[in-house]
C-alpha cells in the first residue's frame, strides 16, 4: 500500500524532505516506518523520544497502524504561540 509522509520544521530540515511517498506493507506501524526512515535519514535519530506523530491530521501513537493512502506527519515538539 501507498502512504504519504510529511515532515515539519526541525525534522524537515534534518531529513531533507517535506513530503514523501512510500510503498509499505499492510498493517505497518508508525514505529516501523520510523525505523525504515532512519536508515536513509539518520538525522532523524537526534529526535529520538521527542517526536509526535499524526495520521490524517489526528495525533496517534508509535504503535498506531496505517492504512492505504494515509498521511503520516512527523512532528518535532511544538513551539507555537
Amino acid at each position: 500500500m501507498k502512504i504519504k509522509i510529511k515532515a515539519f520544521a526541525a525534522v524537515k530540515e534534518a531529513c531533507g524532505f517535506e513530503d514523501k511517498e512510500l510503498t509499505v506493507s499492510e498493517g505497518i506501524s508508525v514505529e516501523k516506518i520510523l525505523l525504515e526512515l532512519k536508515k536513509c535519514h539518520p538525522g532523524l535519530k537526534e529526535f529520538d523520544g521527542t517526536l509526535l506523530f499524526a495520521i490524517n491530521e489526528e495525533y496517534c501513537d508509535q504503535d498506531s497502524v496505517l492504512s492505504d493512502e494515509d498521511t503520516l506527519a512527523i512532528l518535532p515538539p511544538v513551539s507555537g504561540g
Binding site: 520544521a9 499524526a54 495525533y59 518535532p76 511544538v78 513551539s79 507555537g80 504561540g81
Partner: peptide
Amino acid sequence: LIDTVKKKVPIWKK
C-alpha cells in the same frame, strides 16, 4: 487556549 497552543497545536518557531 494559549496553554493548549503551547502544548498541542502543530506550529513551530525558529
